[in-house]
Design a protein around this nucleic acid. Structure first.
Lengths: 319, 319
DNA sequence: CGTCCTGCTGTAACCGCTTACAATTTGTTG
DNA sequence: CAACAAATTGTAAGCGGTTACAGCAGGACG
């Protein structure tokens, strides 16, 4: 009766409903899900909730889910494949209606384990499609290449890449493309790579290390906006102006990137769209991406205020 | 056998474990929880996951929980009491081990509904203690008063308060104290109040409205850091210097406040401690706060770079 | 007034697991 | 080797709901 109120007498229903509130009765979700055999809950696993990029995707996913009467449960992995596996197992045990894994790390054996079950799954940035697994990708290569060529066109010849978790595919793609693109200009351009941790603190620390060298970068390319915020902070603290002394670029276009000072030049990864897309893929109501398919998003470079012409006075400001 | 491996023959165990991985068996969490009658999951409800303040509390809560073998599920309410009620009901249906509500909104009838059940609960910022309900409070009054007096001592006489959701208790407390403190200096000080939405976009919009008036604030007091970031952005965009033209203060001391430009003067609300505290309260392992008790945190004013002496040239820069 | 249909309520099996306990095997000891 | 204890395995009864279906009213109709 608490499910389908259609074939119950009005009087009875009223009596029941009154009892429900009076006794403060709350149906046991587990009993219900067990009996029904399916649930109205979607699972989401993200790498790092402290990074607004993931929060934004979660929020738009949740909004789309709520609209369709689904609820969402999240877990985070801290970029650790082991935790991803643990989370996936936990999610699998919950008999969810679907699972979205918005993660940078991956464990190859997972795909097989996930294919065994029927539940619809969507991976973002990692994994490969399968019977019940869709993939949403971002063309980091093209975006990174554009970014570098843009900086090169401004005269920058000495660039630094600041990233985190270099071994994880989506991050590795950015770094690899950075290197590949720089290598095209090997005659007159040079680069350096610095690995740190995700977040402003990591970005800041990376800049400290960069400045301790004598590399003299005029542009710093960050793996994401979250780190770029810390990068700009440290540059400012050292009395360096962005973009007069050093240009800085990010990746993701998190909301904060617009509020940074100066506003960050970045690559717009459409988080809201991604969240919706992932949800739609799971419920199979998106013509652009059906279960088992792959969809690649081509992100745009968003030029704001943190990048500019290379400084006239030599190219040895930073590092 | 999947629970207590103590009284099973080694050989049998091995066989079972092999079968588990081979068949990709994942125990049904619902069946298990139902049979056990209790779960090892804590629930957390927060107002707004986009605001890093809440994310930080969630993360430290989760870390504390993981350490003790608990997992955590979150939901957000968007500051809407109705959604809080819905979330609480959903959580109640899950037979959790405990529930932490880190929210600004409240629904008085909730307390009674929650007391009926036995599960340990901790509220942050709202509610009142009960048999199974603990409360963690922050003394916003003292902190706000200190902030205002500090600005006053710098010579500021015209201040604006920028907040959101004024009707919600914790936000209302800040505004009320702002007003009360300003009223002490009614002879030579004046203030104005602007209501907007949470987040940088809200802060920014509030400043636009402030500048459209001729109030001429020399200091802007924000209800939280998340809004303050937008406030500073808009001031900068208008060519106003912080703190040379206008001083700005925040509230919460989110990580980003340190990375803002200039670094934000704010009130340090110890989020990590709060997360841990809430978890400990639920498992009853904290001597400072046992179930049914109240603990008040006295936050410190953290002076950084966004505040300074009132500008010499009159007091009519802003608005 | 009996028959049939409709609309509502009562009942029992089952969802997948835990738990306590019965049944069985194995080991120990006089 | 019988007798008993210990160790292991098998069994059945729930946990709190859902679902399909049987049962039983009451109303309409011939």
């Amino acid at each position: 009766m608490l499910n389908d109120a259609s074939n119950v007498a009005e009087a009875t229903r009223r009596r029941v409903l009154r009892a429900v509130t009076e006794l403060k009765y709350h149906p046991n979700v587990h009993a219900r899900t067990l009996a029904r055999g399916r649930s109205r809950t979607m699972g989401m696993i993200v790498s790092n909730l402290e990074n607004p990029f993931f929060v934004d995707i979660f929020c738009s996913f949740e909004a789309a889910a709520a609209e369709r009467g689904y609820s969402v449960t999240v877990e985070q992995t801290g970029y650790q494949p082991a935790r991803l596996v643990a989370s996936v197992r936990a999610m699998l045990g919950r008999r969810l209606a679907g699972l979205a894994a918005i993660v940078s790390e991956m464990e190859p054996t997972l795909i097989e384990e996930l294919t065994a079950r029927g539940l619809p799954i969507v991976f973002f940035d990692v994994g490969r499609p399968a019977r019940n697994i869709s993939i949403v990708r971002v063309n980091y290569e093209v975006a990174m290449q554009r970014t570098i060529e843009y900086l090169y066109s401004l005269g920058h010849r000495r660039m630094a890449f600041i990233g985190h978790h270099a071994s994880l595919a989506p991050l590795e793609a950015r770094r690899r493309t950075f290197i590949a693109t720089m290598d095209r200009h090997t005659s007159d351009a040079a680069y350096t790579i610095i690995e740190s941790t995700d977040g402003p603190a990591g970005g800041r620390e990376a800049v400290r290390r960069l400045l301790a060298t004598d590399f003299g970068a005029t542009a710093i390319v960050c793996a994401n906006d979250f780190m770029a915020i810390g990068v700009m902070k440290e540059l400012r603290a050292r009395g360096l102006s962005v973009p007069l002394d050093v240009s800085v670029t990010g990746f993701d276009n998190i909301q904060l990137s617009e509020y940074a000072s100066p506003a960050l030049t970045t690559v717009d990864v459409p988080r809201t769209r991604i969240g919706q897309l992932c949800f739609n893929a799971l419920t199979g109501q998106d013509s652009r991406l059906d279960l088992g398919g792959t969809l690649t998003i081509d992100p745009e470079l968003l030029v704001r205020e943190s990048t500019g012409q290379v400084p006239r006075r030599a190219a040895s400001v930073v590092g």
